[in-house]
């Protein structure tokens, strides 16, 4: 696939995601040939679609398709997925029930727009590598969305007679955010080039950690406005925390990686020149 084709795909999917979310976006992705793209060009399909979900803040149930494809199951099914803390969830192929405001009702989820629901334990032998990589791209896109919001705010917001982007403390937080996201992107590209389960696990851990760092730095830069539900930031924060927990949090996966190298007595060099 050449650059022009790639750019065209990105723009087409971005347009679809900008207009819709949930079941409507599932339908739109079907029409755009998501299933064929995933089957024929997974190394394009997964990074493009999942990063865009993060950047645009929309959502679709396509994670089910990535898991299904990895397990040799037909696309279009719904798979019970592990969540951190030993819980299991299903990502329904429908819209979330009309969400209550998040402060009301104990049954609400942190990210009430997602059609997630708790489920009975599922298959412990699911092939999660590809789905972890996909979630990593989604987390990366979410992190980038938060960085874009914080950067825009830092340039526009004036205090003490100058834009807050001119203060070194603010600049360094945003720089740290970019470092974390770029590092995570390198691990995701590595997991795309060599999609072994351990490389994918590390990429999900790096992306989860980077997006959590992005949320912390960017919310601090956004300050008061970033604490309101009137600014878009909080959607991305909710998404970050939820996606981090899905298929193993950065903390879970990092600990697994540590156990792995301790048991092996060896720190594998997964990427080589």
């Amino acid at each position: 696939m050449d650059t022009a084709e790639h750019d065209l795909i990105v723009e087409t999917f971005r347009k679809a995601m900008t207009g819709s979310s949930g079941a409507a976006l599932d339908a739109a992705l079907d029409e755009l040939g998501w299933a064929d793209l995933l089957a024929e060009e997974p190394d394009t399909a997964i990074p493009v679609v999942f990063t865009l979900l993060g950047e645009t803040g929309s959502h679709a149930s396509v994670l089910n398709d990535v898991v299904a494809q990895a397990g040799g199951e037909p696309l279009g099914t719904t798979v019970t997925l592990p969540f951190t803390g030993g819980r299991w969830v299903r990502w329904e192929r429908a819209d979330a029930p009309a969400a209550q405001p998040p402060s009301e009702g104990a049954g609400d989820l942190l990210d009430p727009t997602l059609p997630l629901r708790l489920a009975e334990p599922g298959d412990p032998d699911l092939h999660l590598a590809a789905a972890r990589r996909a979630l990593g791209w989604w987390l990366l896109g979410t992190g980038r969305a938060m960085l874009a919001l914080a950067r825009e705010h830092a340039l526009a917001r004036t205090q003490f007679g100058r834009p807050i982007a001119s203060f070194q403390a603010v600049r360094h937080r945003l720089a740290e955010t970019l470092v974390a996201l770029e590092g995570a992107e390198a691990t995701l590209n590595a997991a795309t080039a060599s999609p072994e389960p351990f490389t994918c696990l590390l990429a999900k851990a790096a992306a989860g950690r980077a997006s959590l760092d992005a949320a912390r730095h960017c919310q601090q830069v956004l300050a008061g406005i970033g604490f309101t539900a009137e600014h878009d930031f909080h959607h991305h924060l909710r998404r970050t925390l939820t996606l981090d927990g899905l298929l193993g949090s950065a903390r879970d996966l990092t600990r697994q990686a540590g156990a792995h190298i301790r048991e092996q007595g060896h720190a594998p060099r997964l990427i080589n020149l």
Binding site: E182, A186, T187, A206, T254, R255, G258, R262, L270
Partner: peptide
């Protein structure tokens, strides 16, 4: 071991990240 694995894993992840970036 359990507590240490999180630290070992974090050190390893940081090395893996710069290795991927440097690559």
């Amino acid at each position: 071991a359990g507590a240490d694995d999180a630290d070992l894993g974090a050190a390893y992840l940081a090395l893996h990240t710069i290795r991927c970036r440097s690559h």
